[in-house]
């Protein structure tokens, strides 16, 4: 559905994308995962025909992003990273404006957006600027879907949205996927990666890996140990001083530890921490998560 071949793009001297290639299948939920400044938005803007690549080719549904840009604009729904609706127009007015612009009506495609729109419908007279972050998100998604696009492209849709709304949002994406819409979504959140069928890890304009989240973690052979104690901050610092430590990262309530080799034992760490007077210490081996893989790939 989306095919990217050796795309490069630089802004003056900064190279934003270097030889990017990837492929998105029909009705797939594809995630572009990477930190800020990795080149996610640049790639999306090229696909959305808003930016010309310096070199390489990209096609959407067989249409070239440079030469067939007009046709592409009819089949894609785009939700830019920033909330990009008219803040001084009401929910209802925004929706019907975008419907008309795409030559359709709200009624015609209401089925597609019903699940999302019914949640904000009670506020349909409210100006978009006065909606909460989660509701803005739903409205933006409704507007992007109103012309029943074949492909939905979402640039960091969950950045700045609360945890509950994020979860809801991904559930909505899953439902849309079941309706046969191909979804290309970027996110800086690793925990959202596992919800995708395929992910591409991107950093500094380069693709590190493209695979299913499951395969990506399976391919990763390192031993990950997670730990917790009463004093998390001191724990991190102490672990970083540990001779056999290769990487130590805070992961929510835990610290993920990778040794210089996989022979570092849990008991070894337990002993080390006890000596340093850490209380309520928990040390256990866990299967690697996608974030562990990403952290590791980034270092290389």
């Amino acid at each position: 559905m989306i095919e990217v071949k050796n795309i490069s793009k630089s802004y003056k001297k900064t190279s934003a994308l270097q030889n990017i290639s990837l492929e998105v299948q029909e009705s797939e939920l594809f995630g572009l995962i990477g930190p800020d400044g990795a080149g996610k938005t640049t790639l999306m803007r090229i696909l959305m025909t808003l930016l010309l690549p310096d070199s390489g080719d990209a096609t959407i549904n067989g249409l070239n992003v440079v030469t067939d840009f007009k046709k592409i604009r009819h089949i894609v729904g785009y939700m830019p990273g920033r909330f990009s609706l008219y803040q001084d127009l009401s929910v209802e007015e925004n929706l019907s404006f975008f419907a008309t612009v795409f030559g359709t009506t709200v009624e015609e495609n209401y089925d597609l957006i019903r699940d999302i729109y019914y949640q904000i419908e009670p506020f349909k007279k409210r100006r978009a600027g006065k909606l909460s972050g989660g509701m803005k998100q739903k409205l933006a998604l409704s507007c992007a879907l109103i012309h029943s696009p074949k492909i939905l492209v979402l640039d960091e849709p969950t950045t700045g949205v609360d945890a509950v709304s994020r979860k809801e949002f991904w559930e909505m994406l899953k439902k849309l996927q079941q309706k046969g819409i191909t979804i290309f979504v970027s996110t800086p959140y690793m925990d959202e990666a596992i919800l995708c069928d395929q992910v591409a890890l991107i950093q500094n304009g380069k693709i590190l890996d493209v695979d299913s989240p499951k395969r990506i973690t399976e391919k990763f052979q390192r031993k990950i140990i997670r730990m917790r104690s009463d004093e998390m901050f001191r724990l991190i610092n102490d672990l970083r001083k540990f001779k056999k430590a290769e990487s130590v990262f805070a992961f929510g309530q835990y610290v993920h530890f990778t040794g210089i080799n996989d022979d570092v034992e849990e008991s070894e760490l337990d002993l080390y921490l006890e000596k340093l007077n850490h209380k309520n210490v928990l040390v256990e081996e866990i299967p690697p998560e996608i974030e562990d893989v990403f952290m590791n790939l980034m270092k290389q």
């Binding site: 959305m48 025909t49 808003l50 990009s84 609706l85």
Partner: peptide
């Protein structure tokens, strides 16, 4: 500035 130009540009307008 509002970012709405992005959407207008992507639209068939």
């Amino acid at each position: 500035e509002m970012g709405t130009m992005e959407i207008l540009l992507v639209s068939p307008l």
